[in-house]
């Protein structure tokens, strides 16, 4: 379609409107329409008096992050670098705890929401019972788990956090659940898509050798999709660290909390200290994930 040679008409026109160009043009038009709908005058892009003061004071500290608190603190407060380290540690802890639950949810729901275990040529046995199961229980569980996945992932992690805050009050378990639920849904969706797209030769061979549906799935399909699954899960871990940091804006003791506090106290040097801590944390994980991906996928 995108090849101009495919259509003689397109070749004659000086500027052929291929589907791709049509998509690109409509994207630009959509952007312009969106701007007209919004309250976003270009004048508002330039900081005004108060904002300008913030800009100056904030960026003045960009290269000199605070190495000490900018106002007196109680004797017992740990040094700001220790404080940043502790906030980074808690950010990592929330992300890891949330991801560990999300991974379990993702694997279980991802398995249930593939067709491999109940439909098609991977399911063995033609006994009446098996066929009846494939016609009733299979589709029912499959659609239920897909609906659950949609519900889990269409609500943003911060909105889950807000719901849990309203339902339980401030509790660290709520923060973990807020990460685990939407991330579990996303992992389940991507896992099931990856497994469905995996070549099925090994699975069919196992099936031929008499393996049951679970064995076919976990020994025939999952290992083939394994590197991609692992790489994606690790990428989500990276996202979870960012989400955990932002949860701090809702009162959880992660880096976001420290950033919001210092910013509101106009201690911009401290803000930079915590921002750099976040950047170092995220970049370290991204480099790690990149190295792993090259090892896995290449």
């Amino acid at each position: 379609m995108s090849n101009p040679r495919a259509s003689p008409d397109a070749r004659r026109r000086p500027f052929p409107i291929t589907p791709r160009i049509a998509v690109a043009l409509s994207i630009l038009v959509a952007g312009a329409l969106a701007w007209m709908v919004l309250d976003a005058p270009f004048a508002k892009l330039v900081p005004q008096e108060g904002g300008l003061r913030v800009v100056r004071a904030f960026f003045a500290r960009a290269l000199t992050p605070a190495l000490d608190y900018e106002s007196p603190v109680p004797e017992s407060t740990p040094h700001i670098l220790m404080q940043a380290l502790a906030a980074a540690r808690r950010t990592l802890v929330f992300a890891a705890a949330g991801m560990s639950v999300a991974l379990v949810l993702g694997i279980v729901l991802g398995f249930l929401s593939t067709t491999a275990w109940w439909a098609g040529d991977l399911v063995g046995g033609s006994s009446p019972l098996r066929r009846a199961l494939a016609r009733t229980v299979g589709p029912a569980v499959w659609s239920a788990s897909r609906a659950l996945i949609v519900l889990m992932r269409s609500v943003h992690e911060l909105l889950w956090a807000v719901l849990f805050l309203a339902a339980f009050g401030l509790n660290t378990g709520g923060a973990v659940a807020a990460i685990a639920i939407p991330y579990g849904g996303t992992l389940a969706k991507i896992f099931s898509e990856m497994v469905e797209e995996t070549p099925r030769d090994a699975a069919l061979a196992l099936r031929g050798a008499g393996a049951g549906p679970l064995q076919v799935f976990f020994f025939g399909l999952v290992p083939r999709a394994g590197p991609d699954l692992a790489a994606y899960a690790f990428y989500r871990f990276e996202c979870a660290v960012r989400s955990a940091a932002v949860l701090g804006f809702f009162g959880f003791p992660t880096l976001g909390y420290a950033i919001a506090q210092s910013f509101e106290n106009l201690h911009y040097g401290e803000v930079w200290t915590y921002l750099y801590a976040l950047v170092v944390l995220v970049v370290t994980i991204e480099l790690w994930s990149g190295a792993l991906r090259r090892r896995f996928v290449a």
Binding site: L38, D39, A40, P41, K44, L45, P47, Q48, G50, G51, L52, V54, V55, F58, L158, R242, S243, A245, V246, F249, G256, I259, A260, F263, L275, L278, V279, V282, V283, E286
Partner: peptide
């Protein structure tokens, strides 16, 4: 590396309320 939410938080203090 810096999440959208934190960018928005910082920009809001600098640009004032608009979209």
């Amino acid at each position: 590396a810096i999440p959208e939410y934190i960018w928005a938080f910082l920009l809001l203090a600098m640009l004032g309320t608009s979209a």
